[in-house]
């Protein structure tokens, strides 16, 4: 019962903060509400008793990716006048929601429809087991990911490096 309550609070928090994130005008507000959303997701992982993902979420997303975003925002020194001029923001968002709504409805409908039998009780997944799974069954994706990260690293350096005008 208590876990249900916690889930509801976290979910509400998550949805509200994500909504704020996609609708505010200033980037920094958006980034901060993104932080709240990411922390709520971490909380949801906690309710799922997935300790490893809980840590990962906080370290990688909240700790690394988001601080990188905030760093970029400050590095670029974005002023309010440099923000996009979006006079029809509300209208656009409502129109988009109208388009997205059926997709969401269909997805939720199918989830409602499908039958998830043989559910187990929630159990704590230890980091050790995750590691075993990762290195026993998912070695190849894991290694490929490393190459993907290498590519994106080299790529972003190549692209962001300032060059003399030719």
């Amino acid at each position: 019962m208590l876990s249900n309550m916690i889930f509801i609070i976290l979910a509400t928090n998550l949805l509200i903060s994500s909504f704020v994130m996609i609708s505010t005008k200033r980037v920094i507000d958006s980034a901060l509400s993104m932080l709240i959303a990411l922390l709520s997701i971490a909380g949801i992982y906690a309710t799922l008793q997935s300790s490893f993902m809980f840590i990962t979420q906080i370290i990688i997303y909240a700790g690394a990716i988001l601080s990188l975003v905030i760093f970029i925002i400050m590095f670029l020194n974005i002023k309010d006048k440099n923000l996009p001029h979006e006079p029809h923001k509300t209208r656009d968002m409502i129109l988009t929601s109208l388009v997205v709504f059926p997709i969401t409805a269909v997805l939720i409908y199918f989830i409602k429809l499908s039958d998830f039998s043989n559910l187990n009780e929630k159990t704590t997944s230890s980091i050790g087991k995750v590691g075993l799974e990762l290195y026993q069954n998912y070695v190849l994706p894991f290694e490929l990911i490393s190459i993907l990260l290498l590519i994106s690293l080299v790529g972003s350096i190549t692209l962001a490096r300032k060059e003399k005008d030719v």
């Binding site: 994500s18 909504f19 996609i22 958006s30 970029i72 656009d92 129109l95 988009t96 997205v100 969401t104």
Partner: peptide
């Protein structure tokens, strides 16, 4: 879906 709406309707690249 919220992410989808944000990605489609906003014009700020960081958002």
């Amino acid at each position: 879906s919220l992410g989808l709406i944000g990605a489609v309707s906003r014009r700020n690249i960081i958002i």
